[in-house]
């Protein structure tokens, strides 16, 4: 985040860090015990799913604490229109964890908005571990920034005709104070407070650079993808859970072994 400020534990408990080969690559947000919402382009290149993992309950990526949980990924669902009508269109993905996220004051889900939420006059914030300067400096601490929403027509004027915006996209940025999302913030949530509850209205998606104030951050509009999100979360079953299991033959073998060892000890 450019122009972001340090945040504190428990303030954004839905924030997820998605790692690839041990390095932070994208943000995400917790929707429920098994599902994380992020940007599809985080998984765009052909990569082995086993090389990804996720952290929740963490603010400093170098210091896992007692509230931090680590998860392997069971599957990733990419939106069917990803890159279909726009180079970064349909930039939404659902990530299913292999095991259940345990909720606490440090780890909580974010709410999804209603499809007809009025976006005017909302106080919206974004968070992320992305670059903190256009030179590519990265920080290990989670940053936060309040980003005003920018009307679509104004955003399209700023980007010009070469970078067209789809209806499923929305723009946010603080032009005056040079606050913007940057590389590594992708997938992180844009959240707004409505009636004392935080709703996720956007997913960090793309932009032209980070430090050019005339080019705000562009977000996938969560409201646009609500049906797809809900359908997948409701129809895809939870991943199978590994439970301790000992076959009857193995149990007999173990039992015999224990008996023999017990006899030897007596002798």
């Amino acid at each position: 985040l450019l122009g972001g400020e340090l945040t504190i534990d428990r303030k954004w408990p839905w924030q997820v860090s998605i790692h690839y080969a041990g390095f932070h690559v994208c943000g995400g947000s917790i929707l429920n015990a098994y599902w994380v919402l992020t940007a599809a382009h985080c998984f765009a290149r052909e990569k082995r799913l086993q090389t990804f993992d996720m952290y929740v309950g963490i603010t400093n990526l170098e210091v896992a604490n007692k509230h931090t949980q680590w998860f392997e990924i069971n599957q990733v669902i990419i939106h069917p229109t990803f890159e279909m009508f726009h180079p970064v269109g349909g930039d939404v993905a659902l990530v299913q964890s292999k095991s259940a996220i345990v909720f606490s004051d440090y780890v909580l889900p974010i709410c999804l908005p209603s499809s007809n939420l009025n976006l005017s006059d909302l106080s919206c914030w974004t968070t992320g571990w992305g670059m903190v300067s256009p030179q590519g400096e990265t920080g290990k601490d989670l940053l936060e920034a309040q980003l005003p929403l920018i009307p679509k027509f104004q955003c399209q004027l700023l980007y010009g005709l070469t970078s067209y915006l789809l209806p499923e996209m929305l723009c946010a940025g603080d032009i005056k104070n040079m606050k913007n999302v940057c590389e590594g913030d992708s997938g992180s949530p844009l959240v707004c407070k409505v009636n004392q509850t935080w709703l996720q209205i956007g997913i960090v998606s793309w932009g032209r650079g980070c430090a050019q104030p005339l080019y705000p951050g562009v977000f996938a509009n969560v409201s646009y993808f609500l049906n797809w999100i809900r359908y997948n979360m409701e129809t895809i079953p939870d991943p199978p859970q590994l439970t301790p299991f000992v076959s009857s033959s193995l149990r007999a073998t173990v039992s015999s072994f224990v008996t023999i060892m017990g006899s030897l000890l007596v002798l």
Partner: peptide, 27 residues
């Protein structure tokens, strides 16, 4: 684990906690 979140949020996709309600509120 927090026990203070009732299952009453209409927008929540979670079965056991309320969404969008951090325990800590920023100033």
């Amino acid at each position: 684990v927090s026990h203070r979140h009732p299952k009453s949020q209409p927008n929540s996709l979670s079965s056991d906690v309320a969404c969008g309600q951090p325990a800590l509120h920023g100033k």
